[in-house]
Design a protein around this nucleic acid. Structure first.
Lengths: 352, 352
DNA sequence: GCTTCCTCGGCAAGCGGTTGCCACGAGGCG
DNA sequence: CGCCTCGTGGCAACCGCTTGCCGAGGAAGC
């Protein structure tokens, strides 16, 4: 063992002894203002302060089951989207003096279950960002502990999502205004509820506004995913593509550049989410910005509200507004762009 | 309050009753293999399984002070560097069935202290990534709980850092090979130990290899930081710049592009760390790649080792190897590049 | 003056495990 | 055959805080 002559932290018993009262009184002095005479309370506080007393959250939790911890499950911490989300959740939690326990599913349903297992007995509630688990599994979790899911509207579990419909509409309208007549959508994970929502909304609005749509994929929702399917997208002579998320969109841009296309003249690209990276690319990415940080905060705040006794609002998801941020990756359709010279991993097929 | 007819989870008492043994025996059946007769243990396990018993970590923690949680403090969760770090820490923790409690200092020493305060009583040990606190404060923490700091070599606290010296050397050598004779370093936060280490190493090797160095900054270690100081860097006619980290380097690139310089012909840029974003820029960033994920994992593994009784290795930091990853942002020095047309926020001064 | 109510502190029983110590029986050994 | 040792299980005392309940004493009501 280590050296550690660390003196044990003072307890309410120590404080009680010094202050000349019973431990229960000390406890109440902190937890139940008013229950104890003001003078006594003041004296106790003073002693506590002087002894450096800090309540032991573990002990408290044992009898109250209030750990002041909430679990946050993300499918991939390394994804910038989640970084922002975590930040929001983190902030909202601190506001109420809660602490967040992070779990990373690493895009695997099995790991997610396992991590959840570790979390469950310790946290008061859980926020799950884009689960890879089945709805059945989610429901079973929801039975055990207050739960709120992100980016996935389930009938009976409280959830917060973004307004994918409005976002898709804005994207389509923007592309139409630029003269585009056809849009290629690069799909994300099949298991993703968000992907379905985005595609459906895109498809519907496109039809409404008289544009064609095409759907390719699914791909893994990363830069590599977008890069990998880039040639297929370009082979068909697409002039406008919308990616499942920013990372995919950026991947597509890289593929286009590799194929010696000019951006945005030859190809307009739009992403979803507006992660930090979106503004760092060349050209900077036009994207449907989600209030990511706010999403995390909203989820946590609602979870906390439920923990404080509020009725969970299950029937209807909280839908957060989005905004199309026009940057440099979209431009007027170029009617006579040349057939792309495909990259090394080229695919047969030519531009229309 | 909520509905919740959630039946209370079974305890060792329930299991004991059904299995016809004493609670202590149940406890030992799980915690102390061998201490209990194999048959009895098997029976207990069976009963537990059937009842769906799960040990309550809170209760266990109360008497053993082993929470199986470690704290991870980062100065900015939204920074991609930390995203990777968290992932590594997270993975290493899961390996030993530990859970990580995340705290975000939001680049503020005060918030960092506060968050630490919340963490301290709950976790068995803490990993701090790039602290904004004073060394004094760090030492005081280290006295209370096993601590390991990242990117900051302190004499008496175990730490893991990257081989900044080797990294700087590689960067300088690379630039020299490309014909550059002078290097501008854009400094990061003054409070950053890493910044000092990088600059010193850069300066030393440059001198050794016969190159000039210049140092500008400090700037906040973000894209905006790099972008903001870009003009100052360019005004002096720099041909090669090394940023404190990738984000800063990317910011410089953006500034250069805004000034209508061609990259990398007119300006070579090198970053540090190799965050995910580094390969997504145009041109992709040449950078001194740190094994970020591995750093996180290393920190956690060593912390865990200490918790398991290993002697903390304080005297000497664990230094992790780095590797120069040459991408597209560096090129042969262009001897006759034209004086840059500075952007809107231009600074007086002309190229040499 | 006596009952009633209220305020405020203490007692003690949990919360769900862990663990030092003891007891009991069986096998080993001289 | 008596004594020791070893393997196992149980008892009970924690770990530190919360909280229902009780009771003493003072204020208020009649």
């Amino acid at each position: 063992m280590v050296d550690a002559p660390r003196t044990p932290a003072p307890t309410i018993y120590d404080v009680a002894k010094v202050a000349g009262v019973a431990p229960s009184t000390v406890s109440r002095a902190f937890a139940r203002p008013g229950r104890v005479n003001a003078d006594t309370a003041a004296r106790i506080r003073a002693v506590a302060e002087q002894l450096g007393y800090r309540a032991n959250p573990i002990a408290r939790a044992l009898s109250t089951s209030k750990t002041r911890m909430i679990g946050l499950m993300v499918s991939d911490v390394a994804n910038p989207f989640y970084a922002e989300l975590i930040r929001g959740a983190q902030m909202a939690a601190s506001e109420e003096d809660y602490v967040v326990v992070l779990a990373d599913a690493q895009e695997s349903g099995a790991l997610e279950r396992e991590a959840l297992e570790r979390l469950l007995p310790v946290v008061e509630g859980i926020v799950i960002g884009s689960s890879r688990m089945s709805e059945l599994a989610l429901r079973s979790i929801a039975k055990q502990v207050p739960l709120i899911v992100l980016n996935h509207a389930l009938g009976d579990i409280p959830s917060v999502v973004t307004d994918n419909r409005a976002g898709a509409r804005a994207a389509v309208a923007h592309l139409r205004d630029l003269g585009h007549t056809s849009i290629t959508y690069v799909a994300g994970p099949e298991a993703s509820w968000t992907d379905g929502a985005r595609w459906r909304a895109l498809h519907d609005t496109a039809r409404e506004l008289g544009l064609q749509t095409r759907r390719v994929g699914p791909v893994v929702p990363t830069f590599e995913g977008g890069l990998g399917i880039g040639d297929e997208v370009l082979a068909d002579g697409a002039t406008a593509v919308v990616g499942y998320n920013d990372l995919v969109a950026i991947g597509i841009m890289a593929a286009a550049r590799r194929a010696r296309m000019r951006l945005p003249q030859d190809l307009s690209v739009i992403g979803f989410d507006d992660i930090l990276t979106a503004r760092l690319t060349t050209p900077p990415l036009t994207t449907v910005a989600a209030p990511i940080r706010f999403m995390g905060a909203t989820a946590v705040r609602n979870l906390l509200a439920v923990l404080h006794g509020a009725k969970p609002r299950a029937g209807q998801a909280y839908v957060l507004p989005v905004k199309l941020v026009v940057r440099g990756s979209t431009a007027q359709r170029n009617r006579n762009r040349t057939s792309p010279a495909l990259g090394t991993t080229s695919v047969s097929g030519s531009a229309s």
